[in-house]
């Protein structure tokens, strides 16, 4: 701050408080809606103060789901989301870190080709090649499987480039010292490289967990069987109930539960989250 101007300081706080309110407002309304019984919505306006049906609403959704729209219990959907998010995060990190290791620490024929093939995937977001990718997954018999939900999403140029960048900043002498200390390629990877990349792995994990949990289009296409629904796509199926008034309290409870895990991750691992976000863009 260059000079002291109280009016500007007050203005800054006002802008920030307004920002925080705009950010929090939809969530507040959603939470309030989830605490009311279904009849409270007939009056024509969203209630603005908490209701008394919180426990009932959440327990119903978690344990039995919504039979009318063929929704399995949310606990199952959340478990599916968790499996998907973890598999994608761990899978992406694993295959990216070893391929980055190969590219940085070895010289082999086709090394450049491999590098460019990985680079090209940056330019192929799933939204762009959605139909043919669906067809490949269908042909491989991977519809309605966890493999189909996750494997097509675990190739990532971003993660590979991140690890490549990390490895390039590790001094050559460390590898030479390790070689003199009798470490072969795999031992060097486990004993030196992996522990040294710990922070980057953790930061990337936070980002990828959120990415995996929040997937929408892909599970929407791949799962037709309710037992493989994830909560983020499930919420849409629920809101889509034709010809009847949506059951707002249940939908909003689902929304709250769907956003809770990734939001908690961001709040409690904010440092890693920010690091991951900024690093993956380098």
């Amino acid at each position: 701050m260059v000079e002291n101007r109280p009016i500007l300081n007050i203005l800054a706080h006002l802008v920030l408080i307004l920002g925080v309110l705009v950010v929090a407002f939809p969530i507040y309304i959603a939470f309030i809606a989830s605490t009311h019984g279904p009849t409270d919505f007939l009056s024509g306006l969203i209630p603005l103060t908490p209701g008394h049906d919180t426990w009932h609403t959440y327990m119903t959704m978690l344990t039995t789901g919504m039979q009318t729209s063929g929704m399995p219990p949310l606990s199952l959907q959340m478990m599916n989301s968790l499996i998907m998010a973890l598999t994608i995060a761990i899978g992406k990190i694993s295959i990216s870190i070893i391929s980055a290791y190969a590219i940085v620490y070895f010289r082999f024929p086709f090394r450049n080709l491999a590098f460019w093939l990985i680079f090209i995937t940056l330019m192929l977001p799933v939204e762009v090649r959605i139909l043919p990718t669906y067809k490949v997954v269908a042909d491989l018999g991977m519809l309605d499987t966890y493999a189909g939900l996750t494997i097509p999403l675990i190739a990532s140029a971003t993660a590979t480039f991140l690890f490549r960048q990390v490895f390039l900043t590790i001094p050559d002498e460390l590898m030479e010292a390790a070689r003199i200390d009798g470490a072969g390629p795999m031992k060097f990877f486990w004993d030196i490289l992996l522990p040294m990349s710990r922070n980057n792995i953790a930061a990337l994990f936070v980002i990828l967990f959120i990415y995996g949990w929040n997937q929408y289009l892909w599970p929407l296409l791949i799962t037709t069987d309710a037992s493989h629904y994830t909560i983020v796509m499930g919420i849409k199926r629920m809101a889509d109930v034709a010809d009847s008034q949506p059951q707002w309290n249940y939908i909003m409870a689902t929304a709250i539960l769907a956003m809770l895990p990734p939001v908690l991750v961001v709040i409690f691992m904010q440092k890693l989250f920010v690091k991951g976000l900024i690093e993956t863009e380098k």
Partner: peptide
């Protein structure tokens, strides 16, 4: 070998 930048394993 003793390296110029020491090459100690930082972790």
């Amino acid at each position: 070998m003793v390296f110029q930048n020491y090459a100690l394993y930082p972790h």
